[in-house]
Every structure is written in structure tokens, then in C-alpha cells.
């Protein structure tokens, strides 16, 4: 496998150009994810909000401060080798159960399968949505990128987020945080958060080579 080397981004204009390319990459990948989601659920899913910002891990966590004690399904996928990137899929606990029913074509019931089954279903969604981003990035870089299998959990949001930003790749670094809310267009059954966290310097360096 070819290893893409990082290159220092020199001029300000080059920096702006790269940031535009990155924004484009994120927007395209979010749209592809929403389309894949629509096909999977056979209902129209749209991006109801998105943001692309550079921030620290603390800033990333603090923006969701009032939800820290809520239960969330979470699934993470890590891109391996050249690009330190984590794809995080978040869904509030109750909405996760609704999504499970839609995926399995069931009526809303009081009893649910095990948490592991629920988490795995939701992790599989992240696998599909995450693959869209990986493919987009790979096409942009004209380079093969491998991703991990999803790691899934249901836990307190505060605990999930701090464990994500405490990864070696992101501690004390500026990270690109691209975040999209993907919702059911007709009714507010659920809204998933798809978050892509990436080492900014590394990603810009790699993109400048392509």
C-alpha cells in the first residue's frame, strides 16, 4: 500500500483553497450519507443542519453541555494508516429504539431486544454512512483508505464524548469537526448526528498532495 506523505501548507491562499476543498469533501460525504440512509430506510432523509469548524476537544464537548447526562447510542469508526480520523454516529436512546423499529419494520413495543442487538443495528448504520465518507476521501485523494469495524455502545453522552476526544490522535490538538444532523423529512421520528473528527494539520497536508 502506498503511504501518502504530509506536505507543509505554505501560503495563506493555498490554505484557503484547501479549506474549501475540505468543506466540499465533508458536504458531499454528508449528502451521500443522507442518500444512503434514505435508501436503507425507504423514507426521505435530509440534512437538517451541518457545521464544519476547527476546535479543541474541550470545545467539541462543551457545545453539547446540557445533554451530558442523557443516554445515547454511539458508534465509532476509525480511519487507519494515513489519516487520523474518527467517524462518530450519535443517536438519543429513545430515538435509537424508534430507528431500530423502522429498520426492522416493527411496531413500537415496550420490549426491545438486547442492548447489544440495538447497538449493533445502529453500528451497522454508521458502517454504511461512514463508508460514504471513506469513499469520498479516498476518491478525493485517489488513494486507498481502510477503516475499522464500528465500536458500539449505549452510554451517557458525556462519557462517550470525552472518551472520543481522549484518543491519542486528538489530545491537545486542533481538530476538524464536521457535524451533520440527518433527519426524517416528513416527521421528527429521529435525528442522527454524524460527526467526523480529523487531525486538521494532517488532513490538510494530505489533501495538499492530491
Amino acid at each position: 500500500m502506498t503511504v501518502v506523505k504530509e506536505k507543509k501548507v505554505s501560503s495563506k491562499s493555498e490554505q484557503i483553497k484547501l479549506e474549501k476543498s475540505l468543506t466540499h469533501l465533508f458536504v458531499v460525504s454528508f449528502n451521500q450519507a443522507a442518500n444512503a440512509f434514505s435508501q436503507l430506510l425507504m423514507r426521505e432523509m435530509v440534512i437538517s443542519r451541518y457545521s464544519i469548524e476547527m476546535m479543541t476537544g474541550e470545545q467539541f464537548i462543551n457545545q453539547l453541555e446540557n445533554k451530558m447526562e442523557d443516554g445515547y447510542f454511539a458508534s465509532i469508526i476509525k480511519l487507519q494508516n494515513d489519516v487520523d480520523t474518527t467517524i462518530l454516529f450519535l443517536l438519543p436512546e429513545e430515538e435509537g429504539k424508534r430507528l431500530y423499529n423502522i429498520l426492522n419494520d416493527k411496531e413500537l413495543k415496550a420490549e426491545f431486544p438486547s442492548i447489544e442487538d440495538l447497538s449493533d443495528s445502529i453500528g451497522e448504520l454508521n458502517n454504511i454512512l461512514g463508508s460514504n465518507f471513506t469513499n469520498c476521501l479516498a476518491n478525493t485523494l485517489n488513494h486507498t483508505i481502510h477503516n475499522s469495524v464500528p465500536a458500539n455502545t449505549l452510554d451517557l453522552l458525556g462519557a462517550i464524548l470525552e472518551s472520543v476526544v481522549l484518543q491519542r490522535e486528538f489530545v491537545n490538538k486542533s481538530i476538524f469537526c464536521a457535524e451533520a444532523d440527518i433527519s426524517d423529512k416528513k416527521c421528527s421520528t429521529f435525528t442522527v448526528k454524524l460527526i467526523i473528527l480529523s487531525d486538521k494539520t494532517q488532513l490538510m497536508g494530505i489533501l495538499s498532495q492530491s
Binding site: 464537548i61 462543551n62 453541555e65 453522552l157 458525556g158 462517550i160 472518551s163 481522549l166
Partner: peptide, 25 residues
Amino acid sequence: RFIKMNEIVVAKSPYLIRTVVGSCI
């Protein structure tokens, strides 16, 4: 009072202080 990551809070009765931790202490 909810304690955010990297914060320290000292309080006297009758305060309730709380937080959520994963890998942090």
C-alpha cells in the same frame, strides 16, 4: 452545579455537585 471537563469546584453544604466521566477521573 454540573462540573465540566477540566473544572474544579469546591462547595459547602447544601450544594450538590455532579459530573459525568468516561475515561476521565
